[in-house]
């Protein structure tokens, strides 16, 4: 049986959750076993039923007032208890901050081998081998998990969602939790609203030192908004506090793999490329024709960003207006 953690935020599932459910359901189908999704915290039944559409044969909802906010210890315990009750042999979570917080604890509870940053379905022709990114995207490693139970944290925006059209079988479980499982407390949550989180974005507009100063970011933000993209930046830009650290992509920042990454005024140092090289399509705009980014890009424009951005923005607006 394949168990998948259906991560929710404020009662809603994200696309990465549906990707994880479809990934798990696909493996379950290949192996002729069931796929069970576990939701923790409050989610309405209609939304839980969506998990069946993406492939869950059964949905187990664990909910109580104490589970309203994320808590790694309690969530992991509840999840591992369901895994044990259902007899899970493969456990799937999304490789998100909270997904990974749960995954490690669950692996230790189940004495399960674990791989994070997984980008392939398991190859069982010789063991149980999954591919993961290493060196922040500079390479891939094939990892053979040798334990009876395996935990996989899969990279968002890597696997497609599939509609299985199954009928929802909704059940509940109490998770076997007591007060002693809630030592850490969530005090306050603040989310940037109206902006697409970088970690989930399918389109990213990113800029570097070529923008010459934080006061010139208006056009970057506007282009991102028109395209429905998130904004990102290079390390020097976040180090100089032109942009928040949360926008820094690269080896010591966030590793992302959007469908489109537009790099404006970023030379493409090896550490930066590591964090974005898995993007499906890369555009580099730089006035230096020798900038390393052009070697990693699919499309390039050798020009000063300030000269070409207005034209690109205008064309993007026209496209969006026409579609």
């Amino acid at each position: 049986m394949i168990l998948v953690y259906a991560e929710s935020i404020d009662g809603n599932f994200k696309k990465s959750t549906f990707e994880a459910v479809s990934f798990a359901a696909g493996i379950a189908q290949t192996n002729g076993v069931h796929c069970v999704a576990v939701s923790i915290g409050h989610v309405e039944d209609a939304k839980l039923a969506e998990l069946a559409n993406y492939g869950a044969d059964k949905v187990v909802a664990v909910n109580s007032s104490k589970l309203a906010a994320f808590n790694a210890e309690a969530y992991a315990k509840a999840f591992a208890n369901v895994a044990a009750a259902e007899g899970a042999t493969i456990v799937v979570v999304s490789n998100t901050y909270s997904g990974k917080a749960v995954a490690g604890r669950v692996a230790a509870k189940l004495k399960a081998g674990i791989a994070s940053g997984v980008i392939s379905i398991p190859n069982t022709s010789n063991g149980f081998v999954v591919r993961k990114t290493v060196f922040s995207g500079k390479a891939f490693a094939d990892v053979n998990l040798t334990t009876a139970i395996k935990v996989l944290a899969i990279t968002p925006n890597t696997f497609d969602t599939h509609t299985f059209g199954k009928t929802a079988n909704l059940t509940t479980a109490d998770g076997g939790l007591s007060d002693a499982d809630f030592i850490s407390n969530s005090v306050e949550i603040s989310r940037v609203t109206g902006k697409i989180p970088l970690t989930e974005a399918e389109l990213v507009v990113s800029a570097g030192r070529g923008m010459k100063g934080p006061e010139h970011w208006g056009i970057i933000e506007e282009l991102a908004q028109v395209l429905g993209a998130a904004t990102a930046c290079s390390k020097p830009v976040s180090d100089m506090h032109w942009r928040p650290h949360s926008e820094h992509v690269g080896q010591t920042g966030i590793t992302i793999k959007p469908n489109l990454y537009i790099a404006i005024g970023i030379s493409g140092a090896i550490q930066h490329l590591a964090g974005v090289s898995s993007s499906k399509v890369i555009v580099a705009i730089n006035k230096d024709p020798e900038a390393p980014f052009f070697k990693a890009a699919d499309y390039g424009i050798v020009a000063d960003a300030f000269d070409v951005l207005p034209k690109i923005l205008e064309a993007a607006k026209k496209l969006k207006a026409a579609n």
Binding site: Y97, S98, N185, R191, K195, P197, T199
Partner: peptide, 10 residues
């Protein structure tokens, strides 16, 4: 957290 910050006490 994805898309924001959480304050936690423990």
């Amino acid at each position: 957290i994805d898309g924001g910050k959480e304050k936690v006490s423990c």
